[in-house]
Computed example of a mutant assay.
Amino acid sequence: MPDMLQTIHHAAIICSDYPTSRAFYVETLGLAVIAEHYREARQSYKLDLALPGGGQIELFSFPDAPPRPSRPEAQGLRHLAFTVSDVAECKTALEAKGIAVEPIRVDEYTGRRFTFFADPDGLPLELYEG
């Protein structure tokens, strides 16, 4: 598939509590809102959020969406990783906002620092030093 895939455009996340997840991604993580729509027929919100590198997160709410197992290592999406310039600085900033962040580790293959935290639904999010 040469030249077919260029980059990741977006990651879609279904949340259990829209106001809580919206506040987390917009206020805590600081992502900019591109568009927000309430879809009456589905009783669902769709929030498009901009990532600084050009990618997006689509945040959805659906009534009675079933939980998705993430631990132990379930099949499917394992985690969503964000590149940051300084993992320790970002860890400190998240902890100052009351977010639990795992200890910083070093990738044994790349030598880069990384850590994990979770969104309000327990989706594992990674900070990876670029």
Rank of each mutant, 00 (worst) to 15 (best):
V87M: 08
F24T: 05
V106N: 10
V33S: 02
V26S: 04
E129W: 00
L31G: 11
L127T: 03
R113E: 09
E36D: 13
R78S: 10
L94M: 07
Y45R: 08
H37Y: 15
V26W: 02
T115L: 11
A50F: 12
P120Q: 04
C15R: 00
L5C: 02
R42D: 12
E89A: 11
A32Y: 03
L127I: 03
G30D: 07
Q75M: 13
L80V: 06
G98F: 10
Q56K: 14
I104Y: 08
Q75G: 13
G53D: 14
I13P: 01
K97M: 09
A12Q: 11
S21F: 01
A96I: 03
Y38S: 13
F116G: 01
Y25S: 05
F116K: 00
L5T: 01
Y38K: 12
A41Q: 12
E89G: 06
R112H: 05
L49G: 09
L59S: 05
A96S: 09
I99Y: 07
T7P: 02
S61T: 10
S85L: 11
V26Y: 02
S70N: 11
I8E: 07
S21C: 04
R78D: 11
G122T: 00
T110R: 01
G55I: 06
F24D: 06
T110I: 00
S70K: 11
V26A: 03
Q43P: 12
G98K: 08
R42F: 06
A32V: 10
L123F: 04
R112F: 01
A35R: 15
A88G: 06
M1S: 13
I99C: 08
I104F: 08
G55A: 14
Y128C: 02
R68L: 15
Q75E: 13
R112P: 02
I8T: 09
M4L: 11
I8P: 07
D119N: 05
R105N: 10
K46L: 15
A96D: 08
D86Y: 11
E108H: 02
E126R: 04
E126H: 05
L5K: 02
D119K: 03
R71E: 14
H10W: 10
L123P: 03
G111D: 05
K91N: 02
E73Q: 10
L31P: 12
P72K: 12
P69A: 15
A11I: 15
H9E: 09
L31E: 11
A50D: 14
D3N: 07
A93H: 05
I99N: 07
P67F: 08
E73D: 11
C15A: 00
E95I: 03
R105Y: 06
A35N: 15
V106I: 15
G122A: 01
L5G: 03
Q56M: 13
A118W: 00
H79C: 01
L125F: 00
P63T: 13
G122R: 00
I104C: 07
S85M: 08
